[in-house]
C-alpha cells in the first residue's frame, strides 16, 4: 500500500530541523530518519503523520568520531557504518559483531543508529547495546540540549523519553578498555528477523582470571532491554567455568519477566545468556 498524504519538510541544518519540528509536532509531525521503520508503518497505515521532518540532509547528524575516551555516534549514522570496526579495541569489534544481526544489508545501508533507539522496538539490538554499555543520548529542541541515559531514555515498547518536539542528536558510548571481553547471542526465527531473545555480556577479568566486573543484559524479552543485576552479582568474583555458565543462564531465566510465551522465552534467555557468557569468557572468541 501507499503511505497516506503528508507534507514533507527537508531542513538543511539542525537549527532549521528543530524549528520545523517544533512547528509541526503539535499536529503529530515526526522526524524521518532512515525510514526503515517509519515508512513501512506508513505503508501499512499504522502510522499517519501529517508532516515529516526529513533529517537526511543534515551533515552533522551523520558524523561519527572518538573523543574524550568515548565513541560519539551522530543519530543518522547508518547501521552499515558498523560493518567494519569504527573504533580500535573491543568496542569497534562488538559493534561489528552485533550489527550483522540487524535486518538485512540493504536495510542497514539506510536505517540509522539513532532511528533504532527512537523507534525503541524491544527486539532491536542497538537499544540493548546502549543499556549495557552505558550510553548517553543527546536530545535537542528549541529549549536547548539535554542528556538522557539509556535506561531513562527507553520507556517501553516504541516509547522513549523524547518529547514530540525533540530530535535525538547523538549517542555517546564510553570506549571499552582494551582488556574487556564481550559476547553477543541472539535467537531469531530467520536471519535478519527481530530477535526473540538476545544477550550481551561484557567482562573484565582480574589478574588471576576471575571476573572482576560483569555487565549482562537481555533484550527482546521484556518491554525494554535491561541489565540483570542478580546475574551480574552471581558472576562477579568467580572463575569462568561450564558450571558458572550454566548457573548464570538459569539465574537469568529466573530473573526475567517475559511479555509473552513465558516458558519458551525463559528457555531462550537461559540459552542466550549462557552462550554469550561462554563466548565472552573465551578470549579466542574475541576475534569473531
Amino acid at each position: 500500500m501507499k503511505a497516506p498524504p503528508f507534507e514533507w519538510h527537508r531542513p538543511a541544518t539542525l537549527a532549521e530541523a528543530v524549528a520545523s519540528l517544533a512547528a509541526v509536532a503539535p499536529q503529530d509531525g515526526r522526524v524521518l530518519a532512515g525510514g526503515q521503520s517509519l515508512l513501512p508503518a506508513m505503508a501499512l497505515r499504522v502510522a499517519r503523520p501529517p508532516h515529516l521532518v526529513d533529517i537526511n540532509g543534515i551533515a552533522e547528524l551523520g558524523e561519527l568520531r572518538v573523543e574524550d575516551n568515548a565513541l560519539r555516534i551522530g543519530a543518522l549514522v547508518r547501521h552499515a557504518a558498523f560493518h567494519r570496526p569504527v573504533a580500535h579495541g573491543p568496542l569497534g569489534a562488538l559493534m561489528a559483531g552485533v550489527v550483522r544481526h540487524i535486518a538485512h544489508w540493504p536495510i542497514r545501508t539506510r536505517g540509522s543508529f539513532g532511528g533504532s533507539l527512537c523507534h525503541a522496538d524491544p527486539a532491536s539490538e542497538w537499544p540493548l547495546v546502549a543499556v549495557v554499555l552505558g550510553a548517553t543520548m543527546q536530545a535537542v529542541s528549541l529549549r536547548g540540549d539535554r542528556l538522557i541515559d539509556g535506561p531513562a531514555f527507553l520507556r517501553g515498547p516504541l516509547e522513549t523519553a523524547l518529547a514530540p518536539d525533540e530530535i535525538l542528536r547523538a549517542v555517546t558510548l564510553p570506549l571499552l578498555p582494551a582488556d574487556a571481553h564481550w559476547g553477543f547471542e541472539e535467537v531469531a526465527r530467520r536471519a535478519g528477523d527481530f530477535a526473540q531473545a538476545m544477550a550481551l555480556v561484557v567482562l573484565r577479568m582480574d589478574a588471576i582470571g576471575r571476573v572482576a566486573e560483569a555487565r549482562i543484559g537481555i533484550g527482546g524479552v521484556e518491554a525494554v532491554p535491561r541489565r540483570l543485576a542478580a546475574v551480574e552479582a552471581l558472576v562477579n568474583g568467580r572463575l569462568p567455568s561450564a558450571t558458572l555458565v550454566e548457573e548464570a543462564g538459569r539465574a537469568a531465566a529466573a530473573a526475567c519477566d517475559p511479555m509473552e510465551d513465558a516458558p519458551y522465552r525463559r528457555a531462550l534467555v537461559r540459552a542466550v545468556v549462557s552462550r554469550a557468557l561462554a563466548s565472552a569468557a573465551m578470549p579466542q572468541a574475541l576475534a569473531a
Binding site: 515508512l39 535486518a103 536495510i107
Partner: peptide
C-alpha cells in the same frame, strides 16, 4: 514494506529498498 527485497536498487552505489525511500 521492506521484507522481500525485490525492489532493491543502487543509490549512489549502495543497495537500498526502493519501496522504503521517497
Amino acid at each position: 514494506h521492506g521484507v522481500c527485497g525485490a525492489c532493491t536498487v543502487l543509490v549512489d552505489g549502495r543497495a537500498v529498498r526502493s519501496c522504503l525511500m521517497l
